[in-house]
Design a protein around this nucleic acid. Structure first.
Lengths: 103, 103
DNA sequence: CATTTCCGTAAGCCATAGCTAACCGTAAGT
DNA sequence: ACTTACGGTTAGCTATGGCTTACGGAAATG
């Protein structure tokens, strides 16, 4: 059920923006919050949610915390999504073969 | 930005349950709502959201509407997710090579 | 130690999302 | 035409979630 937390985490636009910013590499909270339209505590709260969802991991470095993308949450999401993907493809394939007879 | 709608749509547990039920094949609204802890209008509202997110498609059949999984929304989601997937893998690979020198 | 930097946490406010109940429209069936 | 089945829409309530402000704690710096 871990994909549920991941989906809920990525549903919020601001939180998604934080997550997407981590594509540029591991960053500290202050740096992440810099280009954001919301306050630093808000970003901190978002990071907590992302962490609990297994989407990011944290590493203390002196007085600052470095956050980075965590593959675990992504893997769970991908696996869940692929279930539907295969089903959708099968349905599409079946539909194509069905309309094959119409020609 | 269509993946945003898809993520928001799949964030809600009830809506996710509706979506997952469609794995058993295309179904009418009444049938979907049957095994649900919420009312039929609620399911109808959820289907509307899923449809706007491109995750399901609708087909009228007499007096009932048949809903099925739509590959479009799934494809968008997958594409978006894969961006992070590659990054996470690269980071993992880099980390592995870095600790290679420690042995 | 005092200070500064960096960040997580708590309290409280406000907007939004999901639910139910009631209603309306449409397509069969008689 | 009347009735029944099916499902989308609306209004209104309530709970939840995200934001800010204020605070507290830990690590570097002097």
């Amino acid at each position: 059920m871990a994909y549920g937390n991941a989906l809920e985490a990525l549903a919020d636009p601001t939180r998604r923006k934080v997550f997407e910013r981590l594509r540029q590499g591991p960053q500290a909270v202050g740096r992440l919050a810099a280009g954001m339209p919301v306050s630093r505590p808000a970003v901190s709260q978002h990071l907590k949610v992302l962490k609990e969802a297994g989407l990011v991991s944290e590493e203390q470095e002196g007085t600052r915390r470095i956050y980075r993308i965590d593959p675990d949450g992504l893997a769970k999401l991908r696996a869940w999504l692929d279930q539907f993907w295969e089903i959708a493809l099968d349905a599409f394939k079946a539909e194509a073969e069905r309309s094959e007879g119409d020609t």
